[in-house]
């Protein structure tokens, strides 16, 4: 949010300067390793072996990226990831918000039963095999829906969205009712527009969750043409770790570990698309003032 212009005390000014520096420092500490990953992905293998940490490579090479994009595997998997993430986020938002709204109405009969149902499902899970059997019997194997539907509602997100809805003052709703709005009308016309920052937040949460999920794809998708990019990333990271085992079975696969620069380039390729989402959504967070102004 943008701060209204206000007079500042000397103490406040000191705080401002201090805060400015502190936040900058934290920002640098947190971005540095990623800068290293980017730099490393453009560096030669020899440099990566020799220098333990750097932000600028001495010799700049595109070899790793040339290798990655020498086939359409990565391009294809990134497109798959983008498609699944976009559709998946919309589906997740629909399921989550449509369920969170009724649950936020305190007068809803059976509300507490539903809430128990949701919380219980967070704490206990049937595990991987029954989950697989459900997906299989729904005929979702090898379908992109298998990467979306099982994640359609994150109970954690659902409960938080519900809390947001609860905080919207009841007067608004009553006013709308007097105007002749139905419950669903209130949801679409008042609640959703009011919760734009919340929508943006959870769009981000779901998009990131779907983007980062590789396990569903490993389990449910056998057709390699449908693998999202995280599966590829996971595979290359596992391969580079291949030495963990006992010597007697070491390297039993005959597979050579990938180059470090290649691994880092895959990290960059698999991470950058989703990283871009946030700055894009950021402006919607600022629009959250809407909610505040209604409240007042």
């Amino acid at each position: 949010m943008s701060m209204p212009k206000m007079h500042n005390t000397p103490g406040g000014r000191v705080f401002d300067v201090f805060n400015f520096i502190l936040m900058g420092l934290i920002g640098i500490i947190m971005i540095c390793p990623f800068l290293y990953i980017i730099a490393g992905s453009f560096a030669t293998e020899a440099e990566l072996t020799r220098r333990s940490f750097f932000i600028f490579p001495e010799t700049f090479t595109l070899d790793a990226y040339k290798y990655i994009f020498s086939t359409d595997t990565f391009t294809r998997s990134i497109l798959v990831s983008i498609g699944v993430t976009v559709v998946g986020t919309l589906v997740c938002l629909f399921f989550t918000f449509s369920m969170a709204y009724p649950l936020s109405r305190k007068t809803l009969m059976g509300r507490s039963f539903f809430m128990n149902l949701i919380v219980f499902s967070m704490l206990f899970s049937g595990g991987m095999i029954p989950g697989y059997i459900v997906v299989k019997s729904l005929g979702l194997l090898d379908s992109y829906w298998a990467l979306i539907l099982p994640l359609a509602i994150n109970p954690f997100n659902l409960i938080i969205v519900k809390t947001f809805f609860q905080n919207i003052p009841i007067e608004l709703e009553e006013a709308a009712k007097i105007d002749g709005c139905s419950e669903v009308g209130i949801f679409w016309r008042i609640m959703l527009p009011l919760s734009k920052p919340v929508l943006a937040t959870f769009a981000l949460f779901y998009a990131v969750a779907i983007w980062n999920d590789f396990f569903s794809a490993l389990l449910y998708i056998t057709d390699s043409a449908k693998w999202p990019v995280q599966v590829l990333l996971q595979q290359i990271i596992i391969l580079s770790q291949a030495q963990l085992g006992d010597a007697a079975s070491a390297g039993a696969s005959f597979v050579e570990p990938p180059d470090q620069s290649l691994k880092l380039a895959v990290v960059v390729v698999a991470t950058l698309p989703i990283l871009i989402v946030y700055p894009f959504l950021q402006k919607h967070f600022a629009k959250g003032m809407l909610l505040g102004s209604v409240k007042g």
Binding site: F95, T96, S98, M99, S121, S125, I133, L149, E183
Partner: peptide
């Protein structure tokens, strides 16, 4: 009350279906 909130219950359906199918059906695994 059920009648009054019927649209709210309708909104609940997709979510409930999700929980039943993807969370509670596999629960027998426990």
């Amino acid at each position: 009350r059920l009648k009054r909130d019927k649209w709210l219950y309708l909104l609940l359906i997709p979510g409930l279906a999700y929980f039943i199918i993807f969370k509670y059906l596999p629960m027998w695994g426990i």
